[in-house]
Design a protein around this nucleic acid. Structure first.
Length: 447
RNA sequence: GGCGGGUUUCCCAAGCGGUCAAAGGGAGCUGACUGUAAAUCAGCCGCUACUAGCUUCAUAGGUUCGAAUCCUAUACCCGCCA
């Protein structure tokens, strides 16, 4: 081979590797509203131990249909806030079994701006994720930027005072009023305004398959009186979200239908949760979100109260949970989907989920451990890399370490939810739950 | 050979008579992370019988009520001049 032909061959191969698939021109595929729907496959039998009215349980398997594909439920939705899973390519997320991803309207509004995502052909095309997508409304930032971002979700409020949790004065970066919320950007301090209409406008441009109504997320430290006001305010915002959503849907018939989920708040109060659920549940939403900081031991009860009031025919998403026992409690009492940053964030900080609990691979003990992160795990990381290697990468703060750990943790939740679905369908849910929880928490593991 | 600068707890580096077991970093150890202000954050980081005591600031002497800090000698290290 001459030098010249060798060079040509190399160039050709290079081009092939770099662009096996060039980004496609932004075009939209028209889809009917009917592209969104929910079918229930199997329901858990009612039991005297059920937490709902009359010992009722709400747990079920099902399928959510979206314009970008189906989601078999119960399902875990990994969080890709900035239109990316931190450290993991969409192709990897797909191959590890993630069915869908959730991004954040507030972050994408700040950067790159919803118009750019719209011009790119929508969130999925922008980030090269062909499956279903969700966006959060920015409601979570009402709390994280408003109350102060530490301890705000503290599930165990024992010994905490409101001063420990709720930011004051200049530290506060979000201010709620009847019409909406004023945010001070964490990026540059500039002020932005979010309201039901603004959030809907942004989320419609981002173009996720499932959107959330703009809600107010309170902390467990707020007073009962404030929680009451907040639930009513969130309900008024919900009605405005539905109206604006319908207007925008009619105005852009060329786009795939985007479903809208209303969010149920009410903190730890049964009457408020039931009130919020029946109010929000009466509106023309495609599904519902169960939101708010929830005291850990009340996960099941709260889900049951809400699902008692919500229509059974629509899917319910429990926002922001990933503790293994929380997921079981939520599934058993009616949750269909769940999202959480935890598997990814915790992975970046070295914590590895296994069926025998969560442990930290950065500990010295794993420096020379050449076994997989979890014995018997079928994830890409466990198939190819050792604890010692992941330990080394994370210690060196090499980004590949985050990638490998995140792949494992996300796969853990895919497998967990696969197991949950199978156990509901074959009638062994209670046994599966008991065995899984006993094993996971046997050694006092968190998570 | 001459002159000058330096040697601080694992590493880098403050300290320049008492408030110093000795600032900051880094490394190390442990923990936390729940709709991502998070590749972040917190605690520990000389020894012990730890609301106190003990042994440390190159080594050995000395001055002083008191020294990592001042003096002398020694050993290394780094400059510049020969």
């Amino acid at each position: 081979m001459t030098q010249e032909t060798a060079q040509t061959a190399a160039t050709t191969q290079h081009a092939t590797i770099l662009s096996p698939q060039t980004p496609q021109a932004p075009t939209r595929i028209p889809l009917e509203r009917e592209a969104f729907g929910f079918d229930i496959v199997t329901e858990l039998p009612n039991s005297p131990h059920g937490l709902g009215r009359g010992g009722r349980r709400h747990g079920r398997t099902g399928v959510i249909h979206t314009p970008h594909g189906d989601i078999r439920t119960p399902a875990f939705v990994p969080v890709a806030t900035q239109a990316t899973m931190k450290g993991v390519l969409p192709e990897q997320m797909k191959s590890l079994g993630s069915q869908c991803l959730l991004a954040n309207a507030f972050h994408l509004f700040e950067r790159p701006g919803e118009d750019i995502i719209d011009a790119a052909g929508g969130l999925g095309r922008f980030m090269n994720w062909s499956g279903p997508t969700y966006t959060d409304s920015g409601g979570f930032q009402v709390l994280s930027l408003g109350a102060g971002f530490k301890k705000t979700l503290a599930m165990d409020t024992t010994g905490l005072k409101s001063d420990d949790v709720i930011a004051k004065g200049k530290q506060r970066r979000a201010f709620v009023d009847e019409d909406g919320v004023t945010f001070k950007s964490p990026l540059n301090g500039s002020e932005h305004r979010f309201s039901a209409e603004i959030s809907m406008g942004i989320q419609h441009k981002i173009g996720a398959d499932i959107m959330f109504a703009f809600d107010e997320l309170t902390t467990l430290m707020n007073t009962r009186r404030y929680q009451e006001e907040s639930v009513e305010r969130t309900f008024r915002w919900a009605k405005r979200c539905v109206a604006e959503h319908q207007r925008l849907t009619a105005a852009r018939a060329d786009k795939p239908y985007q479903a809208l989920f209303g969010v149920v708040q009410g903190a730890n109060y049964e009457d408020l949760r039931r009130l919020a659920a029946s109010e929000v549940g009466s509106l023309d939403f495609d599904g519902f979100g169960i939101g708010g900081a929830i005291e850990k031991k009340l996960m099941g009860e709260i889900s049951a109260w809400i699902c008692d009031e919500l229509p059974d025919s629509k899917p319910r998403h429990v926002l922001g949970i990933a503790a293994v026992d929380d997921i079981f409690a939520a599934v058993e009492n009616g949750g269909d989907t769940f999202d959480c940053v935890a598997p990814a964030r915790v992975a970046r900080n070295g914590a590895i989920y296994t069926h025998d609990g969560r442990w930290n691979v950065m500990r010295t003990a794993y420096k020379t451990d050449f076994g997989p992160l979890e014995e018997g795990c079928d994830c890409y990381t466990c198939q190819h890399y050792s604890r010692a290697y992941v330990h080394h990468l994370l210690k060196c703060r090499e980004m590949t370490g985050s990638t490998l750990a995140t792949i494992h943790n996300e796969r853990f939740f895919v497998r967990l939810l696969d197991g949950i679905r199978a156990s509901i369908d074959n009638g062994s849910f209670d046994d599966f739950r008991d065995a899984t929880l006993e094993r996971f928490y046997r050694n006092g593991s968190r998570g």
